[in-house]
C-alpha cells in the first residue's frame, strides 16, 4: 500500500505552550487511522497543522508525497461542531455543493452532492435547511460534504462527540460502510477509546499535553464490524484495555501485578463518559 500521509517530527507551539511535540507517523492509502488522546492534549492542534490551517513550528507533512504548505487541494475536514460548520443559510444540498464551486461545473456539483447525500442516507433531505435536521443528520451532511469533495485524505476532529450514544453508533457504522464502499483514507481524532478501537485499522495513542505518540496499535479485528459482537470480542476488549492503560499511564510501563486492567479501563471510560455528558449538557444549555 502506498503512503498517503507522512508526518515527520511535527510540532506546534502556541507562544511558549507546546501543544504537540515532534510527532511522526504515516497513514497508508485506504487506511482508517484513529488518534486517541485525552481532552486538551493537542488533537485539534494536530489536525490543524496537518491540514495547513495553522503552520507547524517544527517538522514536515507530506500528502501523497507532496510537502504540505498551506491548505492542500484535496483534503477535507469534518469538525465536531456540525451546527457551526454547516452554513445555516444554505439548504442541505447547497451546503454539500458549496466547496465544489471552485472545482467543478454546476451540473456536476449537483450530481456529486446528490450522490454523496445518498451515500449517507439523506437523499430526501436536500431541500431542507440544516436546523430542520437532528444533530446526527447534520453531521451526516457534513460527512457528505467532505465525501463529495473527493479528498485524498479525510480528517475528522471528534466527529461523533456531540451526538447521543445511539446516533453515535449509527454514524460510526455509516462511516465504516462509506469508507469501505468508496475507499476513502481517513484520519480520525477522538478522545473515546472504544470508538478508536471500533473504527480504526490502527490506533495511535497520544500522551497528555504536550502530545507525543505513546503507542501505535494495530487493530486485529475483522474488517466487518458490528456494534454488539465486535465490542464483545476478546480482541476488542483486550485492545480497549491496552489503549486505556497506555492513555492512563501516559506511556510508562506499569507493573502487571497491579493491574486489574479491566478495572482501570472501566474507571477511565466512566470518567470520559461523564465528561462527555457534562460537555453535552453545557452545549445544550448554551444552545437554549
Amino acid at each position: 500500500m502506498s503512503t498517503m500521509l507522512e508526518v515527520t517530527d511535527l510540532g506546534h507551539r502556541y507562544g511558549d505552550h507546546t501543544a504537540i511535540d515532534r510527532l511522526s507517523f504515516t497513514v497508508a492509502a485506504g487506511e482508517l487511522v484513529c488518534i486517541v488522546g485525552p481532552s486538551g492534549c493537542g488533537k485539534s492542534t494536530l489536525l490543524r497543522t496537518l491540514s495547513g490551517l495553522v503552520a507547524s513550528t517544527t517538522g514536515h507533512v507530506a500528502l501523497h508525497g507532496d510537502e504540505v504548505r498551506g491548505v492542500p487541494d484535496d483534503l477535507a475536514v469534518v469538525f465536531q461542531d456540525y451546527s457551526r460548520s454547516l452554513f445555516p443559510w444554505l439548504t442541505v444540498q447547497r451546503n454539500v455543493e458549496f466547496p465544489l464551486k471552485r472545482k467543478v461545473s454546476r451540473a456536476e456539483r449537483r450530481a456529486r452532492a446528490a450522490e454523496a447525500l445518498e451515500w449517507v442516507g439523506l437523499s430526501g433531505a436536500g431541500a431542507k435547511y440544516p436546523w430542520q435536521l437532528s444533530g446526527g443528520m447534520q453531521q451526516r451532511v457534513a460527512i457528505a460534504r467532505a465525501l463529495a469533495y473527493r479528498p485524498a485524505l479525510l480528517l475528522m476532529d471528534e466527529p461523533f462527540a456531540s451526538v447521543d450514544a445511539q446516533t453515535r453508533f449509527e454514524l460510526e457504522d455509516l462511516l465504516l460502510r462509506v469508507r469501505r464502499e468508496h475507499d476513502t483514507t481517513i484520519l480520525l481524532v477522538t478522545h473515546d477509546i472504544d470508538e478508536s478501537v471500533y473504527l480504526g485499522d490502527r490506533v495511535l495513542v497520544l500522551s497528555k499535553s504536550p502530545a507525543t505518540i505513546v503507542a501505535n496499535l494495530k487493530v486485529d479485528l475483522p474488517a466487518e464490524r458490528d456494534q454488539i459482537t465486535t465490542r464483545e470480542s476478546d480482541t476488542f476488549v483486550a485492545l480497549r484495555a491496552e489503549t486505556a492503560r497506555l492513555l492512563h499511564g501516559g506511556g510508562t510501563v506499569r507493573p502487571r501485578v497491579q493491574a486489574d486492567p479491566e478495572g482501570v479501563a472501566a474507571r477511565f471510560l466512566a470518567a470520559e463518559r461523564a465528561e462527555q455528558a457534562a460537555q453535552a449538557s453545557k452545549r445544550h444549555a448554551a444552545q437554549n
Binding site: 491540514s51 490551517l53 477535507a76 469538525f79 457551526r84 460548520s85 452554513f87 458549496f98 464551486k101 469533495y149
Partner: peptide, 28 residues
C-alpha cells in the same frame, strides 16, 4: 465563527465565495 472560517479555509473556498457565500450571509 471560527468553525465556519476554518471550514471555508480547509475547503479552500475562493475569495468571492468566501465574501458572498459566507461573510455576507452570516452578516445579513
Amino acid at each position: 465563527d471560527e468553525t465556519k472560517t476554518e471550514t471555508a479555509r480547509a475547503f479552500r473556498v475562493s475569495t468571492v465565495d468566501w465574501i458572498f457565500g459566507v461573510v455576507l450571509p452570516a452578516a445579513s
